[in-house]
Nucleic acid binder design. Structure first.
Length: 480
DNA sequence: ATGTTC
């Protein structure tokens, strides 16, 4: 019976190490009974087990309650490898390097914005490039790409997009050090050259929201959030540039596993020893792509502010827009963690998982030291999104929590299920104005295609990975 | 996620 998944408590499940011969550590899944049922329907658990084969993995292959099947590792997976004898795996980061979420606060209430909402959503949709292959107003030559890739969002701020204060409100200050633009292929640079300040497609969105409920008044106060307030959430990543970096290095990793004799149950997890030439190159390129994504969200936030000012016809002071935080949920980072009582330097791969460091952690900005790292959880466009803060994830999951709702329907299944329905009308009946590039992109993303995000965050809250601060309700959404 | 099967 040990070969089956075992329930540890109300929110934790164990995938024993003998679930699949060759696992170096067990798997741990965070979920309640209902979410576990959904998780067992695809190959997620198999992929959690496969992650446990990665050389140098420590503690366990972790999965968050929003996991679903992905490329190699499930989306919602966390694996940490020892940097002395472990590996780095692009499939355990994902195609959309530094896919992430940014939350902006305003001084406005929903009553003040509601009368202009339709106009606002139309203007945002008009001004912000959305959809696959969308191009923005910034055009950079290959040489001009170097600084944004090296210096992160500080580049956008220097260009006049946003303010220096934004940088302190971003994970890692909006820049991963040791990025190497030279390790990014010409093809990747070319794809990225016109994509700064573009939203993309799929589950990426820009949403005008209102704070519907506060669970933790102290943390909400520190974050500048109050009930009835209007916020803006931006969910996007590194676009074609990051996708191309992942594609390029997966080819390289295929060669590396042969060269270094690494055996894996799934080639999609192809990886390379941490101290190899291939790892150095991938990490340099991955960090450059992460910095591109931070610039992308920085530019999008700036244009969002411009549109808000123009449509609402108010002063910047009356708008009171500022950055609450900006998180990366597809990334690999070198961090120090305690494992079996020993401090270790680890490569923490978070693929569809959010860092959630506790209060007092040295990597947090001074103004958030008391509350812990802000966690931004985008839900579906009909229900809710959440703000949480880090609590006790350090001892459990290398300081990681969930990243979203997680799909329950494939894109294809969602389109089939939505046939004959008018999704934007259904949402409008609930007071949510949606603009998307087409019927299909809305059908793929309809609320029923996702798990209930409230259920997901309840699990991470009760399991002590992070603490619920506020629930945000969608008012207006633009989608690729 | 993605110039959505170079």
């Amino acid at each position: 019976m040990s070969k089956a998944v075992q329930k540890l408590d109300d929110y934790r499940w164990l995938l024993p190490q003998d679930y699949k011969p060759g696992m170096r550590v067990p798997g741990i899944i965070y979920a309640d009974e209902a979410l576990m049922e959904a998780i067992m329907k695809d190959l997620s658990l198999e992929q959690v087990a496969n992650g446990a084969f990665l050389p140098g993995i420590v503690k366990a292959s972790f999965a968050m309650p929003d996991i679903h099947q992905g490329y190699g590792l499930p989306v919602g997976g966390v694996v940490a490898t020892n940097v002395t004898d472990g590996v780095v795996s692009p499939g355990a980061v994902g195609y959309d390097i530094n896919c992430g979420v940014r939350l902006l606060r305003t001084e406005l209430t929903k009553e003040e914005v509601r009368p202009r909402l339709k106009e606002l959503v139309s203007a945002l949709f008009h001004e912000i490039p959305t959809g696959v292959g969308s191009r923005g107003r910034i055009r950079l030559g290959r040489k001009e790409m170097e600084t944004p890739l090296l210096t992160g969002a500080a580049w956008a701020v220097k260009q006049g997009y946003g303010e220096p204060a934004d940088l302190a409100c971003m994970e890692s200050g909006g820049c991963l050090p040791d990025a190497d633009p030279e390790a990014v292929s010409h093809k990747a640079l070319e794809r990225g050259s016109s994509q700064l300040g573009t939203l993309g497609s799929g589950n990426h969105f820009l949403e005008v929201q209102t704070v519907a409920e506060i669970y933790d008044p102290h943390a909400a106060g520190v974050l500048g959030l109050f009930e009835g307030q209007v916020t803006v959430m931006i969910h996007t990543g590194s676009r074609g540039l990051g996708h191309q970096v992942c594609t390029d290095y997966l080819v390289e990793m295929e060669r590396a596993i042969v060269k270094y004799g690494i055996e894996l149950p799934d080639r999609q997890l192809a990886c390379t020893p941490w101290n190899s030439r291939e790892a150095k190159a991938y990490l340099g390129a991955m960090r450059a792509a992460a910095n591109f994504a931070w610039n992308n969200r920085q530019c999008l936030a700036h244009w969002t502010k411009e549109v808000l000012l123009k449509v609402l016809g108010i002063s910047p002071r009356a708008l009171g827009l500022s950055t609450v935080y900006d998180v990366a949920h597809n990334i690999v980072k070198v961090e120090e963690h305690e494992v079996d009582g020993r401090r270790m330097k680890l490569a923490v791969h978070r693929k569809g998982a959010t860092r959630a460091f506790p209060p007092g952690h040295p990597e947090l900005p001074a103004h958030y030291q008391a509350i812990g790292q802000p966690v931004l959880i985008p839900g579906d466009m009909g229900r809710a999104s959440f703000v949480l803060v880090g609590t006790g994830a350090m001892e459990q999951t290398f300081g990681s929590t969930c990243h979203g709702a997680g799909r329950v329907m494939s894109r294809h299944a969602a389109i089939r299920a939505a046939k004959g329905r008018v999704i934007h009308r259904e949402l409008e009946d609930q007071g949510i104005i949606v603009k998307a590039s087409g019927w299909e992109s809305l059908a793929e993303e309809m609320p029923e295609a996702y798990k209930d995000v409230t259920q997901v965050v309840t699990v991470v809250h009760r399991a002590g990975l992070s603490k619920m601060v506020a629930r945000l309700r969608p008012m207006g959404v633009i989608k690729g």
